[in-house]
Design a protein around this nucleic acid. Sequence first.
RNA 1: GGUCCCAUCGUCUAGGGGUCUAGGACGCCGGCCUCUCACGCCGGUAACGGGGGUUCGAAUCCCCCUGGGAUCACCA
Length: 466
Amino acid sequence: MRKIRTRFAPSPSGYLHVGGARTALFNWLYAQHTQGSFILRIEDTDQARSTDESVRAIFEGLEWLGIQWDEGPFYQSQRSEIYAEHIDKLISTGNAYYCTCTPDEIEAMREKARAKGEKPRYDGTCRNKELGPQTGAVVRFKAPQSANTILDDVVKGSIVFANNELDDFVIRRSDGMPTYNLAVVVDDVTMNINTVLRGDDHVMNTPKQILIYQALGHELPVFAHVPMVLGDDRTRLSKRHGATSVTAYRDMGLLPDAFVNYLARLGWSYGDQEFFTRQELIEKFTLERIGKSAGIFDPVKMQALNADHIQAAAPEVIAPHVKPFLQESGYNTDDETYLKALIPTLQPRSKTLREMAEQAHFYYRPELEYDEKAVKKFLKPAIVEPLKALKENLSSLTSFDEKKLETVFVNLMEKFEIKLGKIAQPVRVALTGTSVSPGIFEIIAVLGKKKVLQRLEKAIELIQAR
RNA sequence: GGUCCCAUCGUCUAGGGGUCUAGGACGCCGGCCUCUCACGCCGGUAACGGGGGUUCGAAUCCCCCUGGGAUCACCA
């Protein structure tokens, strides 16, 4: 079997958005699955809208997603000679011709057609003029006016287009730059792309492209048009639906693997399975399992999946991803051992890495910030003696493990005849400043003797000062 | 408006003629567990858009309607 070659070909006119990310992901997954190649190509033939900043944003997004390309990036803006060559070939074989009609004349044609109730299109004025090259002229593709063009799509099935719906579309602009439809085909042909996997907003372009493939005498690639990603109002996902840039999701605290998992399951499925590791995705991703209806992007479900990934990941995997959020608050995260010890205490209670960092404040803050209500409710004079006893018992321990800590607490409970809940909450407030935190034994073990004793003392002083 | 695509719980989906009194996940509502908050566990809520066919039998096949989406550039 021939080697699969897929590509992602974004136009650099903005950041990498959710829909583009999913297209990139599918292409990458499929190439990985088949041990083929994934090519990155930047479609920057639109000088006016393309920016270097957008190119960087796309790289940044792909990097975060963990998607590497095997070849490229190739820039269309640097391939002018290749397009010129192919356009010349189309002209010399009679498949394309020069056209000197002005934009105003074209507009007039369209108006006229609309007035007659027909569809606006180019009327073929220059079609048989046999015009030669001249400045200001465009090149048009001579589209067949009869019969059908059939697109055999892997996800959509067979789609028939009547050729008389097409007009002679421009393939080279008056400034000499090729238009999209010409450039994609020439690129895909010369780069030996044999699997074109893209958003289904490209379906209507496909017959034109098929015609170009045929005029060039080239074999067609396999086409797979993936349904759109919609916003909650069922229209194409855009800024007004909230964040659409993939880096925005990084900044919200998504784990890249979780985001990738969510994106993959939006429009693709594998039985009832919801949770996939990156490796599982590669193993199981096939074109046949791509669904044919559009899907609505659901941030809530995405976050739930993120929580699952956070829980399943090893602390050392999470550490580098949560660090930036900790540093945002000004904390020093050089102590890797400490970081890796506290992460497990927060894993089951964090839906995002940002949440995790927020809940980690008490682990890092040199001076606790006390919650008024919690202090008032739990740090009462009656608890001073138990706290003192706890302090004393803990200071005699050489190491903190949960078993030993439990024994200490059991002894305290017996001595003062109180339930665990009665002593745990005050201790929690003393150690974290709030009444909500990971398990009491866990946080004592992670904080370590020094911090624990200091904070207990501070709490005792606080009570006595009132 | 022309052309094209799509149509199962609120959402993502399983399902490809009988095993569907339609399954899973998120959400939501109860309960259990419990040192707080979570996690976890148990249970519940909720869907085949409508109408015609085909068939002994349709969520599954065909047609129409309705609804939604995409696209109609010298943008990609």
